[in-house]
Design a protein around this nucleic acid. Sequence first.
DNA 1: AATGAATGAGCTTTCATTCAT
DNA 2: AATGAATGAAAGCTCATTCAT
Lengths: 217, 217, 217, 217
Amino acid sequence: MIADMNQPMPAEPKPRWERRKDARPHELLSAALDLFVDRGYAATRLEDVARRAGVSKGTLYLYFENKQELFKAVVRENIVQVIGRAESDVAAADDVSCSELLRTMLRRWWTDVAATRASGLAKLIMAEAGNFPEIAQFYNDEVIARGHALLSSIVRRGIERGEFAPVDPDVMTRVLTAPVIMLMLWAHSFDPCGSQVEPDVFLDTYLELVRRGMAAG
Amino acid sequence: MIADMNQPMPAEPKPRWERRKDARPHELLSAALDLFVDRGYAATRLEDVARRAGVSKGTLYLYFENKQELFKAVVRENIVQVIGRAESDVAAADDVSCSELLRTMLRRWWTDVAATRASGLAKLIMAEAGNFPEIAQFYNDEVIARGHALLSSIVRRGIERGEFAPVDPDVMTRVLTAPVIMLMLWAHSFDPCGSQVEPDVFLDTYLELVRRGMAAG
Amino acid sequence: MIADMNQPMPAEPKPRWERRKDARPHELLSAALDLFVDRGYAATRLEDVARRAGVSKGTLYLYFENKQELFKAVVRENIVQVIGRAESDVAAADDVSCSELLRTMLRRWWTDVAATRASGLAKLIMAEAGNFPEIAQFYNDEVIARGHALLSSIVRRGIERGEFAPVDPDVMTRVLTAPVIMLMLWAHSFDPCGSQVEPDVFLDTYLELVRRGMAAG
Amino acid sequence: MIADMNQPMPAEPKPRWERRKDARPHELLSAALDLFVDRGYAATRLEDVARRAGVSKGTLYLYFENKQELFKAVVRENIVQVIGRAESDVAAADDVSCSELLRTMLRRWWTDVAATRASGLAKLIMAEAGNFPEIAQFYNDEVIARGHALLSSIVRRGIERGEFAPVDPDVMTRVLTAPVIMLMLWAHSFDPCGSQVEPDVFLDTYLELVRRGMAAG
DNA sequence: AATGAATGAGCTTTCATTCAT
DNA sequence: AATGAATGAAAGCTCATTCAT
């Protein structure tokens, strides 16, 4: 022990793998996202996830209890977090016009989720939720319900303030979200339909429609 | 004797199995459709398909070579057939206005495919095509390509006749199909979004849009 | 009965299939021999046997209790019968020289069994007897033991008569049979070795050897 | 407490499984050889191989991709390796007399392959090659062709040097190999014929014959 | 006598999860 | 903290045998 302490400590002798310790979970989540999006939930093999992250199968279980928890973590890192930030921002943006706020939120949804690899999670959930009820429940509670609540609160506020025409806020929220969901699905379907669509053009057109269509009077 | 008559029908010798050659394929296809739509391709166990059709695992293999062929047969019975009939009708409807013909075809797509259990196959393909290339190929050749060709031929004819404004027929066809595809997906997603949408209202609105939007001049 | 006799008997109205009634078992045995020889016992599917004989799977079970009995019947028709005839002939040939008789018997074995499709049964037995004890027992009792007894009786008789040099008749019988067995195996092995050998030349040489080698003095 | 001490060694925690990476492949190959030889290729169940090696079904697949590869590995370990060594030795033995070299090689074939459990593989191949073309191909390429090439090269060299009478080297090679092959088959046939033969005597006699028969002049 | 639909045990292969090292 | 060997429950598919027609 004493001998050890006297050693010259040559410029942090950390072996390379130790330095990455903190990065591990993120690397695993990134690998998992890629594979879940590519192959779906059931068809993704944890061994592949581990290999892609450069670790062994066993290591994965040090960080995540099981496949389901890994998936939840992926959703949390890639979607729930974005929603959380959005919630704070909306709460803090009482002075901004609702029309403007809605625009901002939809755009952020697009840039931070829909236009990223994470959009594939929507496809996955749609396809496999039925086979994994616990995952469905989780996704519904953490993503769909919160996202819907967030947007509909803006719509509701806009109506109260006379900024928007009076409509059913829940229905309107669904109308607002549908096209973005469609875009996410298109991005991950093999269907040639999707590949032809230019998402940015689609989104701009759509947002303009929203602006006009929702204006009061 | 009299006593016998009162007995609860002595167990109806109930044969170990019943011979129903003609009905079997349809029963199996129906069971398969249910399960494929419900659980997806990979997660559907052939034993469950058989049980739901009231037969044993082995029987299924008397009628379908393997899982893939069973799936193809399901697609053929529920989608390809409809397209086939539509092709004949379009070929025979040279005198009808293209606008009218397009309306009819989209409506038929809705009633004969999208509004039935078969619409779940679209979701399945979108989600799992990547994992089963041969199925993807089959679906693309037999459904997507043929369906697109059929609709775009009408659009093309309408433009040639001056009935429609001159647009790229392929692009327009994709625009025409997207909403119906979306409806099919909604119908099978656990997402509460979709369940709220009233498909008939949606479709009517959409068709009216098409009528106005495509008119020449 | 009388009525029947008076019927006009219009040129034998027998439907075609009925005429073959007696041929059925033989057709099935022939088909079974082909397939057993080609694929082995376990790998031969009864459905294929039936199809090759031009009947249905069920029909096969009208004539043979099960796969094992079918196989036994094949062996009986193609090998046991030959041995039976040989036994009678040997019993009736008390006046023929043993050398001559031996020659005749080995030749007959060659022409009636070894040079026919039936030789493949030897390969099959050698390869699969271990997995089907009842078949092994049957083959041993009906073919090997009887065949050996027959040949060794001739050898024994020859020694008693001073025609053959005094040797252990059982050992000599094994020496006599080995080459013919080898020929049978060669004929059905994929090994190029066998295909090069000209069986008739081989057999002649061998028989000449037997003639000289066994002569007394 | 004292009572406890008398208990029969409290169940030796006996781990559910043991980690023996290095020994496993060999244990599995040995178990597989036993069963393949005993039952043939098709009739050998991988679960039995695993159980005999003291592991579970799944473990086998950690070491061998599938049944076919397991079989190939068995052939490689038990036959191909021997041929490989023989090839090196022949190449290095330019100064030895061909007669001597041939003797050595045939003897080694006997001791290293034919007199071991591996000889049963020859029977297996003969019986089942027809049903498993890929295995037939492999065995032909790796064993038959290489073995034949090796021996015929010695014969050819012997003829060139005037040591052997001029004969067709390929034919002579087949003649040389046939009896050893026969011995291998005998060793694994249930046929009582074979069990009587004393292989060593047989082989000695045979080698003497080769010596005399092939001598030039 | 003939058919062929129906059965179900059996076999190969996959993969989430555990745990000795 | 990290590894990867080991497990065993599925799931797809085959085929000898049965039996209603």
